[in-house]
Design a protein around this nucleic acid. Structure first.
Lengths: 140, 140
DNA sequence: ACTCTTAGCGAGAATGATTCTCATGCACAC
DNA sequence: GTGTGCATGAGAATCATTCTCGCTAAGAGT
């Protein structure tokens, strides 16, 4: 389910609608994470008539396609989304202001894999989230 | 179970009610994780008249006291709880059957700390979740 | 360009988990 | 035994997210 033949319209092909473009646009503009509700509000503010259901639907689709990064801030009940390269990475988030930094940690990849193997688990996937207080918030 | 000396009642102390004991009991019995709803059902089945609100309240309290371990299985919307030593650890979970193994990974501790420091974040905390397919489920 | 098929949309209802309200109850100190 | 106040419980309230279903429009085929 990849790449090369995007034009060769196959059965379940994705259509590029203005709504989808608008959602991606909003996400691209704001560098940080945004919740479905925030995106929805933003779109309304822009005058784009996009339904909430569509926002959720699209966000879900894009996330499963790997074009978005979805994460749940612990303590919150809502899911946050952010545009990101499809590359695997982890997050370092500030507890106070929510600022997020994407970090690569090759060691973790290997480690997670080793742990899985040790316990006879195959096809491992992992998530690492780090929270702390960023430099700016330490001063304040 | 590990009941130490709770008799030293300090101010604002937690009271040991039969409800709380029942909830901890249910959690201790089942080795794995349980959702609030499952615990609630279990308690009803045992004839204990415990309210759902109480289950949530107690679970939340215990989790923040570090007596329980709370985690959200990705893909699910409910939070799962499990008794655990207050020691920091990570989870390796089977995607099929949900079986969970607690793992220690000292390297991750250091790594997470390093990453935080590099980005000038202080007081770091982290979570590592690994998912895979366990030996049993690979056969099936 | 015109048409046809169907993925995608929108509004609101539905769902599911968790939290809140508040009158009553019970654990614990004295 | 008695008093005080945290804990409880039933149900309502909230919140995020998903579903329903008739309608719209993207893109392939002609």
């Amino acid at each position: 389910m990849t790449d090369s033949d995007q034009h060769t319209a196959k059965r379940g092909a994705r259509r590029m609608t203005k709504q989808r473009a608008a959602i991606v646009g909003v996400l691209s503009d704001r560098a940080g994470f945004a919740s479905a509700a925030q995106i929805y509000d933003e779109l309304r503010a822009q005058g784009a008539g996009v339904g909430l259901a569509t926002v959720y639907r699209t966000l879900g689709t894009l996330a499963s396609e790997g074009q978005l990064d979805a994460l749940q801030q612990p303590g919150t009940s809502e899911t946050l989304y952010r545009v990101c390269g499809a590359e695997h990475h982890h997050h370092l988030t500030c507890r106070q202001c929510g600022r997020t930094v994407e970090v690569q940690a090759p060691e973790v990849e290997r480690l997670a894999s080793d742990i899985a193997t040790t316990h006879h688990f195959t096809n491992p996937e992992h998530t690492l989230e780090i929270a702390g207080t960023c430099a700016t918030c330490q001063v304040a």
